[in-house]
Design a protein around this nucleic acid. Structure first.
Lengths: 196, 196
DNA sequence: GTCTATATTGCGATAGAC
DNA sequence: GTCTATCGCAATATAGAC
């Protein structure tokens, strides 16, 4: 296998293992077996298990950075919030491992939390706060709302819904077919909750 | 140290380590060093590291089971939702490690997820769904609301707020002094979002 | 009940052959 | 660039002394 393919192949084959068991929960032998490569390839391409994990993390959070496209968009704040919801749901569908790695870094941070994870999430939250402030100064939202709390409420509704999937699997339909209903439902509560 | 004290001491001293680094992220040497006991005490009292972790998990989720008190309470649904919020916030203040272990089990489940974690969370969610249904059949809530989605929105707003603390620490005051404002804010959005 | 000492296994990393 | 073989270390667990 040539270099570029091999590197990418190792990353994609090991992402599910890191997502399900964490950095410390999986060993290099299992990682390389899943990728179908020799054990020494991890050191060769990534300088070690931690280096491979950092590469996995970078790839995952690159997807999150695309939310920044909202900034350049010319739309009113509520439409932007809805686009955020849609982008979030779409991202979790395209990439079923992102949320696990995301939440795993929040609860059991590795050395890469500060450099890769935290800045990426902060950028999204800040973008949403700016969006809220825009609508607030236009007088669209109720008085007395705290921008950060409001934004974190929206972020929490959608993310925790997916995070709880292992627990609520038997209580609610988690297939993509219901995504549209979910988005509408969250937007519904949020809009009624904050609009004048 | 006598038996009962020693057992309890090991559990309380190792809970922070398990919470911050996960079951696989910490070794028995470090665990026993933190508790100030000999390495063999883990096998003696708990039959091994996994047994200790299970004991830690049981203790943590016992706190969660106290939410079931809501069931016997004679109050209207919105008051019950507010009590759920208050109980949740109080629980995370009393026990700063519960949420991390909780979320860690959601993302990187151990063998104890199915037996200890999942049933405890399901009971809380089901209780809130029943509370919602009660208010819905009394005609208090807007038509078109899905009970499960609505309840998960509430659960997500409060839990994800705390989960994001490592990221939002510099953006928002996370001290207990602001808890009352947070609860009021979440209840505000939720009530406006679902009431007729 | 608590200790030391050790058995056993698995880990991550790499030297060196090809 | 990819392999085998192995090094050095840390892991969990426990036997057996006290």
């Amino acid at each position: 296998m040539e270099e570029k393919d091999c590197r990418a192949n190792i990353i994609s084959a090991t992402t599910p293992l890191f997502a399900e068991r964490g950095l410390t929960g999986v060993g290099v032998r299992e990682l390389t077996a899943a990728a179908g490569v020799n054990i020494s390839m991890i050191s060769y391409y990534f300088g070690g298990k931690n280096g491979l994990y950092a590469a996995v993390l970078s790839e995952q959070f690159a997807a999150l950075n695309r939310v920044a496209d909202l900034k350049t968009l010319d739309a009113d704040p509520m439409a932007k919030f809805e686009l955020y919801l849609r982008a979030t749901v779409a991202r979790y569908r395209e990439n079923p491992y992102l949320l696990r790695i995301y939440a795993s870094e929040l609860t059991n941070p590795t050395p890469f939390f500060e450099t890769i994870v935290k800045p990426a999430i902060q950028a999204v939250v800040q973008l949403l706060i700016d969006t809220f402030s825009e609508g607030f100064s236009d007088g669209r939202f109720r008085e007395g709302l705290n921008p950060t709390d409001t934004v974190l409420a929206l972020v929490g509704m959608i993310n925790f819904y997916f995070l709880l999937e292992p627990v609520t699997r038997e209580m609610v339909d988690h297939t993509a077919g219901r995504d549209e209903e979910l988005i509408r439902h969250v937007m519904d509560i949020f809009a009624m909750g904050i609009l004048k």
